[in-house]
């Protein structure tokens, strides 16, 4: 079936199966920042923003995304907040294997928009973004800086 998605501000037409996931559709469009980690909606690696809210693209159907605005990191290349959180992660060395990097960045980005400030709330908000490399603390140092949260 033919569908139209709004991705990173652009209208994209593509041919999909009814069962095609949003993850598959975005990769068909060449948006390789969107990656598969688990198959069970457990790891958060496939996170994208739908109308500015993080969702798991591995368990969303492409057809469901019609009429919504989808954002991936490719669409935030020149966004100031995005640049800042990316820089903070780099400065902390929190970008280890990096496979979960774009999904974490998107979730933190949306966090800023929600104006959450307490450290505990931030940790809770990010709990679905698993990382096996960093042990999370370097990410937290970077995010604290970005969210301007003190000790």
């Amino acid at each position: 079936m033919k569908i139209t998605l709004t991705v990173n501000g652009r209208k994209e037409n593509l041919e999909v199966e009814p069962s095609t996931t949003l993850l598959e559709a975005l990769r068909m469009l060449g948006l390789y920042s969107v990656r598969k980690g688990c198959d069970t909606a457990s790891c958060g690696v496939c996170t994208v923003l739908m109308d500015s809210k993080p969702i798991l693209s591995c368990c969303s159907l492409a057809v469901q995304a019609q009429g919504h605005s989808i954002t991936t990191v490719e669409g935030l290349e020149k966004d100031k907040d995005f640049e800042e959180i990316r820089k903070n992660l780099l400065l902390e060395g929190a970008d280890q294997c990096g496979y979960c990097g774009p999904s974490l960045l998107l979730t933190v980005y949306s966090l800023k928009k929600r104006n959450i400030k307490s450290l505990q709330e931030i940790q809770k908000y990010l709990v679905g973004n698993l990382c096996r490399c960093t042990g999370y603390h370097s990410q937290l140092r970077a995010i604290k800086e970005f969210m301007e949260v003190g000790e």
Binding site: Y32, L90, P102
Partner: peptide, 11 residues
């Protein structure tokens, strides 16, 4: 790190 966090095709 920059390219990886920017989601460039790499894997």
């Amino acid at each position: 790190g920059y390219g990886i966090l920017s989601g460039k095709p790499a894997y």
